[in-house]
Simulated assay, not measured.
Amino acid sequence: MKVLSATTASLVMDGTQAMASPAATETGGLGLAAIIFTAFIAMVVLFQLLPGLAMFLRIFKGIFSTEVEQRAKEVAKDNRTGL
């Protein structure tokens, strides 16, 4: 048991020293593939945000609108003359 705990402790200490070294903090920057992937994810988020926000506002409006307004809209819709 002592061997296992000593081994684990030495691995943890070595790992923390490696993470604290100055070489570990330097980055090489983003490559072209990473930039394209990040842009793609940003576009997906933006294109999903607008319809989601519109749907949320319609639900919010439906919750707080009165039933009289709904009936008035239905009557006005039924009274239209279609071609």
Rank of each mutant, 00 (worst) to 15 (best):
M1K: 12
K2V: 12
K2P: 05
V3R: 15
V3D: 15
V3Y: 07
V3C: 02
V3Q: 12
L4H: 02
L4F: 07
S5K: 15
S5H: 13
A6M: 07
A6K: 02
T7C: 09
T8Y: 08
T8F: 13
T8G: 02
T8K: 14
T8C: 11
A9E: 12
A9I: 05
S10L: 10
S10D: 13
S10F: 07
L11C: 09
L11E: 09
V12W: 04
V12T: 07
V12Q: 08
V12M: 07
V12C: 06
D14S: 15
D14F: 11
G15S: 10
G15Y: 04
G15N: 08
G15L: 07
T16H: 10
Q17H: 10
Q17D: 13
A18V: 10
A18G: 03
M19W: 00
M19E: 09
M19C: 05
S21L: 05
S21T: 11
P22E: 06
P22Q: 01
A23P: 00
A23D: 11
A24Q: 09
A24S: 15
A24F: 10
T25D: 07
E26A: 14
E26F: 13
T27H: 09
T27V: 07
T27K: 11
G28M: 15
G28H: 15
G29V: 01
G29M: 03
G29P: 01
L30T: 06
L30S: 10
G31A: 06
L32T: 08
L32W: 00
A33R: 13
A33G: 06
A34D: 15
A34I: 03
A34L: 05
I35A: 10
I36R: 13
I36H: 09
F37V: 00
A39Y: 07
F40P: 03
F40T: 06
F40C: 00
F40G: 05
I41R: 07
I41S: 03
I41L: 11
I41H: 02
A42F: 14
A42I: 04
M43C: 13
V44I: 14
V44P: 01
V44Q: 04
V44G: 01
V45E: 00
V45P: 00
V45K: 01
V45S: 00
V45D: 02
L46S: 02
L46F: 14
L46K: 00
F47R: 02
Q48E: 12
L49P: 04
L49R: 05
P51A: 10
G52E: 02
L53D: 02
A54V: 15
A54C: 14
M55I: 11
M55C: 08
M55A: 13
M55K: 14
F56A: 13
F56Q: 05
L57T: 14
R58V: 15
R58C: 14
R58W: 13
I59N: 10
F60V: 08
K61T: 10
K61V: 07
K61G: 05
K61I: 05
K61E: 10
F64E: 02
S65I: 06
T66N: 12
T66D: 14
E67Y: 00
E69V: 05
E69I: 06
R71S: 08
R71W: 09
A72K: 13
K73N: 01
K73R: 07
K73D: 04
K73S: 03
K73Q: 06
E74W: 05
V75Q: 11
V75G: 04
V75N: 01
A76V: 03
A76I: 06
K77H: 12
N79M: 11
N79T: 10
N79A: 15
R80K: 12
T81E: 14
L83V: 06
L83Y: 08
